[in-house]
Design a protein around this nucleic acid. Structure first.
Lengths: 192, 192
DNA sequence: GTCATTATTGACGATAATGTCAAACTTGAC
DNA sequence: GTCAAGTTTGACATTATCGTCAATAATGAC
């Protein structure tokens, strides 16, 4: 390797992820990324091609981390406990930062009409993986339902988390979201 | 009145609503609005001031119409029937058009971080009104729960509809959304 | 019919973002 | 040390959007 890259790729992608998380794919500019990473625009174009390529790398990292964390939280307890842990984690994820960053997946999905096929594919894939993980987890719980029903419920749960992400953007507080999530689980599982 | 407006305000706002619905407040340009309405950019600036003012008028119309329609659908039947009607209406609303337009409220909420205080306020107000209408309706149903619980459930239901809107943008079909909604109501009410 | 008032029009300058490129620079390989 | 390969840099042309404005046109009031 001769002409060697002057910046740490991992770090640049992490910093870029933060920009996309706060502004969204459409609103973030190459200038934003250059400022946040300390790498000039020209270098970013040379290294990655365009903004979307950077976004895809950042999103892939985000998706892998989030999914791994979720699988871990879904591993133990009865159905209600697993769902509570999953929903809490999603709420913490979207209300983190100051000001809160919201949910990257949801923001990206909302621009799916504008974004490219590749971006749409990543969102769909992550949502599918979440459904799969939740379905598997509630099916495997000691009091879990049988498989086709578990998968239907998983989709409802994932859909509900997307709703929480929208409500967060609309101004609902972490506390309000947690209360809604608790009501949801109680009503869904019949624990109330 | 001396120099009189050359265009029909109602029609222009309706055409503008369609543009915002398809593109979102941030992505729609004054040029888009000018082309869709047949009114030149300069005239739009003269008549309304800026893009956001046009958006607020369009959104207010949309919100009033949607809310009126929803209140109507929530007026009869047991809790499950009322919720099914409400969810179906939301799904039809967001999957209408070709290609589907999605949900204007949800798209707008996702840009709330960027948008102005006035825009955020409209979104919050509409969501609040929806919660109020749903809470009142399920409380008033023959088999409806008492009030504090009805309101908590209403928030869960409204949150779920926001989730449906996100899933629609992610590529889920009307049929898939309806199936999810049915599972949701069955599980929530215990009708399954 | 005249006029005052308002709307319309098209052009203008400003700003911001994109993508590209040649020149300069850096560095590992030999 | 020299060199070739790849990176960095700053500048450039292009495109898009915004908001404004002076000139022109239209019309209700009298």
């Amino acid at each position: 390797m001769v002409g060697v890259r002057q910046f740490d790729e991992q770090e640049v992608i992490a910093l870029a992820l933060n920009v996309f998380w706060r502004k969204g794919l459409g609103e973030a500019t190459m200038q934003d990324l250059a400022e946040a990473t300390g790498v000039q625009r020209g270098s970013l174009y040379n290294a990655y091609g365009d903004k979307e390529a950077i976004f895809l790398r950042a999103f892939d990292r985000y998706a892998a981390d989030f999914l791994a964390s979720v699988e871990n939280l879904l591993a133990n307890g009865d159905v209600a406990t697993r769902l509570r842990n999953f929903l809490d984690s999603a709420i913490v994820n979207m209300t983190g930062g100051s000001p809160p960053r919201g949910c990257l997946t949801t923001r990206t999905a909302l621009n799916a009409g504008i974004a490219s096929e590749a971006v749409r594919g990543r969102v769909q894939h992550l949502l599918g993986e979440l459904e799969r993980a939740v379905g598997k987890a509630i099916n495997a719980a000691p009091d879990g339902p049988a498989l086709p029903e578990a998968n239907r419920l998983a989709r409802v749960v994932v859909t509900f988390t997307r709703g929480l992400a929208v409500m967060e953007r609309a101004g609902y507080s972490r506390k309000q979201l947690k209360e809604s999530a608790a009501t949801f689980v109680d009503a869904l599982i019949g624990g109330a």
